[in-house]
């Protein structure tokens, strides 16, 4: 179990690092999907199979699909500005320093209070479901409403509104 965890965590980290450094958006998205699968594996090894499967189905399956569709639809895979300035090392220094500082601070705060890592028990989906519909019923319903709001919002924002162009611009305007 330990080995599995370590391998999948390494995969996840490397895949994420690759995802953010690609020039091509589709490549980056594919790396991201790999990273998500790695995280899912990590979750399985620590005894949360329900979460692991959910991650694969919803996160990697649905959300990433949305991303890929959008990128393909709008032809955003390669964009000109990125090539010019992004790949230089200069642009990466400051965020990396900042990230390193943040990481260091977080490490310090975690490692100052060592915690007991004893038992490990697999938590079944049945337990999660029971909890969701008893104690967390209200938040679940609200989450549903949130999704509804998101759907309505996305629809509204994505509408094509009819634009009244000057009659001389009618033919030259391409949408």
């Amino acid at each position: 179990m330990n080995v599995l965890f370590i391998v999948s965590s390494v995969v996840a980290v490397i895949a994420s690092a690759m995802a953010i450094t690609r020039r091509n958006a589709v490549h980056a998205l594919l790396f991201l999907i790999v990273s998500l699968m790695g995280v899912s594996m990590m979750m399985y090894t620590i005894g949360a199979p329900y979460a692991a499967v959910l991650e694969i189905i919803v996160y990697a399956g649905a959300i990433m699909m949305l991303f890929v569709f959008t990128v393909m639809m709008l032809n955003l895979s390669v964009s000109p500005e990125d090539e010019k300035r992004q790949t230089g090392f200069k642009t990466w220094i400051f965020p990396m320093v900042l990230g390193a500082i943040l990481l260091g601070v977080m490490f310090l705060s975690f490692l100052s209070n060592p915690s007991w890592s004893g038992l490990q028990q697999t938590i079944s989906p049945k337990q999660v479901g029971t909890l969701m519909f008893s104690r967390y019923l209200l938040p679940v319903q609200i989450a549903g409403v949130l999704l509804l709001a998101a759907i309505v919002g996305a629809y509204y924002l994505g509408r094509t509104r009819k634009r009244n162009l000057h009659r001389y611009l009618q033919n030259t305007e391409e949408e």
Partner: peptide, 8 residues
Amino acid sequence: IGLLTRRN
């Protein structure tokens, strides 16, 4: 880091 760096 990715958030801070990328413009796209």
